[in-house]
Design a protein around this nucleic acid. Sequence first.
DNA 1: TACCAGTACATAGCAACACTGAATAGCTGA
DNA 2: TCAGCTATTCAGTGTTGCTATGTACTGGTA
Lengths: 109, 109
Amino acid sequence: MGKQMTEMLKGTLEGIVLAILSGRPAYGYEITAWLRDQGFSDIAEGTVYALLVRIERRGLVDVEKVPSDKGPPRKVYSLNAQGQEYLEEFWGTWSFLAERLEQLRKAGR
Amino acid sequence: MGKQMTEMLKGTLEGIVLAILSGRPAYGYEITAWLRDQGFSDIAEGTVYALLVRIERRGLVDVEKVPSDKGPPRKVYSLNAQGQEYLEEFWGTWSFLAERLEQLRKAGR
DNA sequence: TACCAGTACATAGCAACACTGAATAGCTGA
DNA sequence: TCAGCTATTCAGTGTTGCTATGTACTGGTA
């Protein structure tokens, strides 16, 4: 992963994961795989798990332990009301930033 | 500044400043003022100066000390060739991220 | 049986970054 | 002289993503 991307993911990765969870419940391994699929080539597994622990501790998600037939039990996360609210805030912050950057990019050409 | 914004600025603030400098040379105090004007209400002065030191050390900008008639001398920064290249990389990284997020946002509605 | 690959989660230590808060310094006008 | 604006610097803090490693369960295969 490029250094630029690493830094830029700070703050946004959290939003990305919450956005995924707002679509449907999911567990860590699955989320990691999905991210890699989307081109976040080298997202470290540890990164995702640590993030999930954080958002759980902050009460943004509900957790359910579900047995898997292919390995250890999965921790399935789903966005709760507080998480939904937080996600909306995230989109607000993101929009603001994206607009400024789009303006700057236009100005530079 | 909201906590979300603080985290999201990591990595992007650098790009923002480089983008500003790609338009015209500028000095720290001026950049801070401009950012506040654009709605980055509480960008800390210290943050901008620290960032400028970093990009100078990495050789992305050229620096010139210019006397001011309103206070101490200004350190005027201008983007050099290496900085321009780095900025282009930044836009690439940003575009990638912005596209994924836009998709996620669409999917969520 | 022994071993390995794939699935699934966890965590300690590290580096980078933005913020807080304070200090320093030059200039102007009351 | 002193307040207020201009202008820069820096030590200390918290959050974040990455690296590296470890644990644990299942199924296939040699």
